[in-house]
């Protein structure tokens, strides 16, 4: 229930901020569209529009390739303080 509450208002936050371009090095800004396990959040939960979801997914994949964001967080490779080194 709490999770549904979290994403109740469905509107694209990126449209509201008029984001035209996302930088994969700006990792703090990617946090909104990442789950606790660093998965890409689906559109139905974040409310992103299609255009911005496409942008964010390519940007997150770039950041993963650049070792700025982990691919997966499992029990074995758990991050003690997630988002600590995301500046």
């Amino acid at each position: 229930m709490a999770e549904r509450r979290k994403y109740k208002k469905r509107y694209c936050k990126y449209c509201e901020a008029k984001v035209d371009f996302m930088d994969y090095k700006d990792v703090g800004a990617l946090r909104f569209s990442l789950s606790e396990r660093y998965k890409i959040m689906p559109r139905r939960l974040t409310g992103n529009c299609k255009r911005h979801q496409d942008m964010i997914s390519t940007v997150i994949k770039r950041a993963r390739a650049a070792a700025l964001v982990p691919y997966t967080v499992t029990r074995k490779t758990v991050v003690t303080a997630p988002f600590e080194n995301l500046r």
């Binding site: 229930m1 709490a2 509450r5 979290k6 936050k13 990126y14 901020a17 700006d26 703090g28 800004a29 946090r31 909104f32 988002f83 995301l86 500046r87």
Partner: peptide, 14 residues
Amino acid sequence: EEVIIPAGIDEDED
């Protein structure tokens, strides 16, 4: 440490 995060994501206010 000036992380810019889009506003929102209220934690369980209910």
